[in-house]
Write a protein that binds this DNA or RNA. Structure first.
Length: 818
RNA sequence: GCCCGGGUGGCGAAAUGGUAGACGCGGGGGACUUAAAAUCCCCUGGCCGAAAGGCCAUGCGGGUUCGAUUCCCGCCUCGGGCACCA
């Protein structure tokens, strides 16, 4: 870009040069530690948290910058409003992403990650974010993951960490375990090979124990409603009942099959039972003559890959030869196995009601099992034939159900549960869809799980004093066919004396899930420079829970739920005094480009570096926020960035011109105070785009006449602009003769008296159509406005007789109905 | 299939019951300039009309209301998430 200063006459103020202004203020902020608040003493603590990024090799993505800027504006605004604002930054640098990238380029992650972090830090610095760099952290720091392991131990000691055999996603081509996020539509996201299931011993956290609380607290939390909804759906509570069916032709066996259902009212229509193929009772109930068929089916479904299971919903199954007694009808029903029943949900067994469940209907049709109607809609009766499963509830009544016939679904539900309950065959329960959190990763790049296995002592947690269990340097960290972490190949590390008996023992070789790293980083930040504690008690009390957290909704479930869970556990352990980590959470939208998602494969990625070079960080920041409503995202169109640059140029010019002291023009000052009111309100609710538009409007008024602006007209404008464009604001604030930072200058006050207009335009409608506007005082009485309105030819023309009705909204509109 | 968002000028958008299109981009015209850039000013939803003015218009169809982009009912469509959850 041409340097605008060269063409200027010497007596004119120098033009706006973003590069030098931004460098100057970034350096000054660093020198004066301007963004490092005194966490121990600063008044009105305000913890503004942004989601820390995974430091990819590609560098900062424009989407990262969009997220950070939205936080930064809110944080800077709060600071100007008088809060001590803590806005830290860090890196979520462990995990499969780094590892896979390292494998691809052949550089060890321990070398790659610091490099990436340096690049991220540089880019974040250039963006002018108000970061307290004294508390910077990376989850890969020894001083960080030591405490991640400590968190594991806290859960372990409270009985919330346990090991069990569970299936993992296995890619036979890459010979590696895949996280769920790496499986797209049943195939490996890297090579496209169908993913298989493998059974491995894995560590789990008992998050399901906390499901009711995780769900209940949502009702009173100040979070984006979309995020709350996602969490509710993910936890997925279902109200229903456990019903017990006794095995055997006449219910003589000692075995009970317990099913879960949300529709106990339909039990009279339960014509068969289905067990998940891996259900523990399958072996026991299967009759000898059916053994072969059952075993064959179980073998097949165990081997079946994920793709087949996800794409084909055809119903398959096998008959066990056994029957059980329906506790409501007293009749025998056959017991089948089928993979449409999932072992992980409910009890792993269902009562099938083919008349009123689509899946059961398909299965019953395929295998010729009886279908009975037990619910009838308003225009149906007990004998209306069923063409398909009918699941209606509202206005429906129970039929073919003995003494319960004629009851509504809701009534029948309650009555049947208590009726069966008296005989010990039913119990009302709530089932959750949430599963326990599998934290094991058979990988290299993560914090080793701090557990030691000893022949004599069994599973022994690593004593706290021995933390961290350091991640050793392993040259070849490629996962292999064994499904065992590469850490097992490091003999000196792997073999370790038992902390209890001192005998030769071996370490757990799994590392923990990256989501565990990020489930507590907000607790660490205020104490990030402390090595002796995970988080300082006093600082934590003062700074947590997080005051304001703004992040992407892609983390609506996992990260935010895990963070809540870990916080609750630490609360229950008496380590912190709050159980919800984020007092306020807002989900921001996503940025797309020219109507399409930005992605490397589409080749439409824009890089922040190039944009900062060309336009300056202030313009880029402000432009990103101007694109659209922050909570909905925006469409990046580079051509329109010039409008925002023009705003900054005009503000620069106005301040440079403003030499006159005094009151300021009345019309301009009124607009100024209206603008202050709007910008203040808009930033508070993250409506950044309209705040910027309001400032543009004000600048249009300010520069509308051929006149020299007064100081009083521009000074508050600089303060309003500061959160969006911090560098230029500091520079202009200094130009205006201030020695303190604009961020310590406060926030302009609205003078309410100046905001109100003397006369206003009042819209006049006839039968709902706008016919004229009239000028009147804000509080003019209806009669006066009506007279004015009728004097308008455009109104009189349409008002022929006496008006039927008149609606008057003072200061806004007059509506005449004829 | 289920859940959550959207659909408004040429484009990004604003207005959450009260003058639809603020603000910005793009486009057109003009001023300044030898010229260009920059800057500044004016115009810019569609149709009819010389003008005054009128009519139409917020995905589609209904409804409530003096008045609906906004609230209600039914659909179409795009984006995101989940998916045999009993």
């Amino acid at each position: 870009m041409a340097d605008p200063t060269t063409s200027r006459a010497p007596e004119e103020a120098p033009g706006y040069d973003p590069t030098s202004v931004e460098r100057k203020w970034q350096d000054r902020w660093a020198q004066t530690r301007a963004n490092t608040p005194d966490l121990a003493k600063g008044g009105k603590p305000f913890y503004q948290l942004m989601m820390f990024p995974y430091p990819s090799a590609e560098g900062l993505h424009i989407g990262n910058l969009y997220a950070f800027t939205g936080n930064d504006i809110h944080g800077r605004f709060q600071r100007q409003r008088g809060h001590t604002v803590f806005q830290p930054f860090g890196y979520d640098a462990f995990g499969i992403h780094s590892e896979n990238y390292a494998l691809k380029v052949g550089v060890h992650p321990s070398e790659l990650i610091p490099r990436n972090i340096d690049n991220f830090r540089r880019q974040v610095h250039r963006a002018g974010l108000m970061i307290d760099w004294s508390k910077e952290l990376s989850t890969t720091d020894r001083a960080y993951y030591k405490w991640t392991q400590w968190i594991f131990l806290q859960l372990y000691h409270r009985g919330l960490a346990y090991k069990k055999r569970a299936s993992v996603n296995w890619c036979p081509t890459d010979k590696t375990v895949l996280a769920n996020e790496q499986v797209e539509g049943g195939v490996c996201e890297r090579c496209g090979t169908p993913v298989e299931q493998r059974l491995l011993e894995q560590w789990f956290f008992r998050i399901t124990d906390y499901a009711p609380r995780l769900l209940r607290n949502l009702d009173t939390m100040d979070w984006s409603s979309s995020t709350l909804t996602s969490q509710r759906n993910w936890i997925g509570a279902s109200e229903g009942a456990r019903l017990t069916f006794r095995v055997g032709d006449d219910g003589d066996s000692a075995d009970d099959i317990v099913v879960f259902t949300t529709r106990p009212d339909t039990i009279f229509g339960a014509t068969y039972l289905v067990l998940a193929p891996e259900h523990p009772l399958v072996d026991k109930v299967t009759r000898p003559e059916q053994r072969k068929a059952v075993d064959a089916y179980r073998a097949r479904s165990a081997k079946q890959d994920v793709v087949a299971r996800k794409t084909s919903k055809d119903k398959t199954g096998a008959f066990t030869g056994a029957t059980a007694i329906n506790p409501a009808t007293g009749r025998g029903v056959p017991i089948w196995i089928a993979d449409y029943v999932l072992m992980e949900y409910g009890t792993g067994a269902i009562m099938a009601v083919p008349g009123h469940d689509e899946r059961d209907f398909e299965f019953a049709t395929a295998f010729g099992l009886p279908i009975i109607r037990v619910v009838a809609g308003a225009d149906e009766n007990a004998d209306t034939p069923l063409e398909a499963a009918e699941s209606h509830v509202e206005g429906a009544r129970v039929v073919n159900s003995g003494e319960f016939d004629g009851l509504t679904v809701a009534d029948a539900n309650a009555r049947i549960v208590s009726w069966l309950g008296e005989r010990g065959a039913a119990k009302a329960v709530t089932t959750y869809r949430l599963h326990d959190w599998c934290i094991s990763r058979q990988r290299y790049w993560g914090p080793p799980i701090p557990i030691i296995y000893c022949e004599s002592c069994g599973t022994v947690p690593v004593p706290e004093k021995d933390l961290p269990v350091e991640l050793p340097f392993v040259e070849d960290f490629r996962p292999d066919d064994s499904g065992i972490s590469p850490l097992a190949r490091h003999a000196e590390w792997y073999h370790v004396p038992c902390p209890q008996c001192g005998k030769q023992a071996r370490r757990e070789t799994d590392v923990s899930d990256t989501f565990l790293d990020s489930a507590w980083y907000f607790l660490r930040y205020p104490s990030a420079d402390r090595d002796d504690v995970p988080f300082d008690k006093a600082l934590t009390k003062r700074w947590l829970p997080v005051t304001s957290y703004i992040g992407g909704n892609e983390h609506a479930v996992l990260h935010l739920l895990y963070s809540r869970f870990v916080t609750m556990v630490l609360h229950d352990a008496g380590l912190i005094d709050f159980e919800e980590p984020f007092a306020k959470f807002r989900a921001h939208g996503h940025i797309i480009r020219e109507g399409a998602k930005m992605s490397k494969t589409k080749g439409n990625v824009v890089t922040p570096d190039a944009l900062v070079d060309e336009w300056g960080a202030d313009t880029l920041r402000t432009y990103l926020m101007f694109l659209g409503p922050y909570e909905e995202g925006g469409d990046f169109r580079e051509r329109s960035i010039s409008g925002v640059k023009r705003l900054l140029d005009r503000v620069w010019a106005s301040v440079s011109d403003a030499r006159t002291a005094g009151q300021g023009d009345e019309v301009v000052m009124r607009k100024l105070h209206q603008t202050i009111a709007k910008v203040t309100d808009d930033i508070g609710r993250l409506s950044y785009n309209t705040a910027i538009a309001a400032m543009m409007e004000y600048v249009n008024v300010l520069r509308g006449h051929e006149r020299v602006p007064h100081r009083a007209e521009v000074e508050p404008l600089v303060q309003l602009l500061a959160p969006f464009a911090p560098h230029i604001a500091e520079e202009l604030w200094e130009t205006l003769g201030h020695t303190k930072s604009v961020f310590d200058s406060g926030w302009p006050e609205v003078d309410a008296a100046r905001v109100v207009e003397g006369t206003v335009k009042i819209a006049v409608q006839v039968n709902g159509k706008l016919r004229a506007t009239v000028d009147a005082t804000r509080d003019a009485p209806q009669d006066v406005v009506l007279q004015l309105a009728l004097a308008e030819a455009g109104v009189a023309r349409f008002v022929t007789g006496t008006p039927k009705k008149i609606i008057y909204v003072a200061g806004r509109l007059l509506s005449i109905v004829v």
